[in-house]
Amino acid sequence: MLRGLVRFLALPPTAVRCKSNLDYSRFPVLQESDIEETFMRGSGPGGQAVNKTSNCVFLRHLPTNITVKCHTHRLASKNRVEARKLLLEKLDVHLNGEHSIAAQVKAQEQRKSTERRRRQEKLQEMKKSWQDRERTDGGTKSTDKE
């Protein structure tokens, strides 16, 4: 059942992909058969006879031995989905390194901040040169008056 979900998780919605200029071509697909899933102690089968509330989910990606643990949500079912997202992100970083989405996002942000800083510096420079000019002008004026 979750297999369908995983396929859906493999790629973000098309709208997002189109808007961003991130390269998703290398983004891995999660095979449900590669995953070993364990639930927190105190969780597990029970049915009507037991009232279980455990939420924690562990995943191990068997080929790479990458593990994730997720207990963000109150429901184990939501954490199962969330854990698969986290595992995919980790797997992407593991397999694709600097081409991974996380690295791309980081690089993009760095570019943006460098650009911002450059613009800021330029502005500062212009301001400074204007101030300098004004001061010299003003200086001349005041000497003129005297």
């Binding site: 369908g4 029970g46 049915g47 009507q48 009232n51 279980k52 079912s77």
Partner: peptide, 17 residues
């Protein structure tokens, strides 16, 4: 009143699908 169990979510996923 009976509290729904986590297995029932999986059941409903199948039915809804």
């Amino acid at each position: 009143v009976f509290i729904p169990r986590p297995e029932t979510e999986e059941f409903m996923r199948l039915v809804i699908d």
